[in-house]
Design a protein around this nucleic acid. Sequence first.
DNA 1: TCAGACTTGTGAACGGTGTTCACCGTAAAC
DNA 2: GTTTACGGTGAACACCGTTCACAAGTCTGA
Lengths: 252, 252
Amino acid sequence: MSEASVQPTRRERQREATYAEIVQVSRDLLAEGAELSLRAVAGRMGVTAPALYRYVANYQELVDLVAFEIDKAATEGFRAATETQPEDDPAARLLCASVAFRRWALGSPREFSLVFANPVADGACVRRDLLTSATSGHFFNALLIRVWEHHRFPHPELSELDPAVAQALEDPLYPIDLALVPEGHRGLLWVFMNAWAALYGVVTLEVFGHLDPRIIESGAIFAAMVHEWMPRLGMDAEQERLRALLASELAR
Amino acid sequence: MSEASVQPTRRERQREATYAEIVQVSRDLLAEGAELSLRAVAGRMGVTAPALYRYVANYQELVDLVAFEIDKAATEGFRAATETQPEDDPAARLLCASVAFRRWALGSPREFSLVFANPVADGACVRRDLLTSATSGHFFNALLIRVWEHHRFPHPELSELDPAVAQALEDPLYPIDLALVPEGHRGLLWVFMNAWAALYGVVTLEVFGHLDPRIIESGAIFAAMVHEWMPRLGMDAEQERLRALLASELAR
DNA sequence: TCAGACTTGTGAACGGTGTTCACCGTAAAC
DNA sequence: GTTTACGGTGAACACCGTTCACAAGTCTGA
């Protein structure tokens, strides 16, 4: 009966705990404004740098690991933001999550850069199993689908799209839970990607400061982008209510 | 008659030449995929690293310097792209410049990151005098104003905008040539900033690869963004012609 | 129980980085 | 012709990522 690995062995638990400590220490360093380096992480763990090579193959892998965990934690924050709104009001939920995303990015620019302005983890990301679970990509995608289920905004058919796009939407590479996208409505993913591009774009622009700081501070560019998108997501009818909600969320 | 500094002295010319060499060598390094480092630049110049401290105060200042010069050179490329179109067709010119911007960014991601994904030069940028001359910001702003002069698309009045925005538009901080913006049409700058956010956003998203590579390669997200913006810039009437031009430019 | 294998950490070393500092020629300035 | 300032050097410091031989400790299996 060597049916192992159903229960984690002591060794495995220890190893997992060490991974957790590596991530925790790394996040502490980033939060303190320090550089994320193998030696700094090791030092703070009371260990020498080469020891970390038992857990990550190189520096980039440490970065990928930390980036993934930061994304996961941040997404938990976005989820909390949605839950200030009733479950049957997905538009309000998406709106709150978007504002939370912006707030997090502006408040933690180093973490944001690590996750979203890093040359993409080129496929060889460690612990890929975790990549299938909660990431901000999955989360926002799910949120938008909920909005669609509620408001039934229009989306293109695959046949109307660039063939390359249609093919990409047939079997998407990136964090998207295909089980969530309704049968026959793959075109929704195209709307999602465009919305994501708009959100990502404005927030990145603000984080990197390539804009008048007074305008960043006011949130006007972000608000304008959201206003622009509301009709496309079937929120025309309640525009006033949602604009008010956006303004109050931005002011927090 | 010690009326100096009207003609550059031999020393000053030598110094300027050294700056030029620093920039040139740095750009070579980046183009070769190598890291941009003081020691590497110095080494290739046949000089030791501390010597560079006679020209830049620290590494960040080297980066700022190189970033500025890269931006300047890239802008020259965008200008060349506009000149494939007739002068009285500013819409086509803007379109070509935008495609050139995207092409440059995707083709030189390291350079793009240096210029546009660097924590903004925090006011203390060296050789600030040069900041007033040609940058991509100035260039695209001028281009958009030309489009407005030709197509007279609508723009908001300052009084309709968020007061913080209105104030920022009264005396803008960032590369904008106020002499170019027509009297009483400061609201144009708001359109410009929104358009810039959209362009910057999509291109940054593509460069950092936070999107299905097949979709990036097809240029579909970029095209969708441009299509979205055409009506707002008064290009409705010629949409077909301009869409065709966009497609052919993207295919190059 | 005991030997062997595997895991995890160490210390030393290598080559790389930015940065400082004392020093020193040479070229410009008076 | 003397003085000053500029531009360059070499050595050093403190970091960085990375490798490698080695030493414990722990788990495994006969």
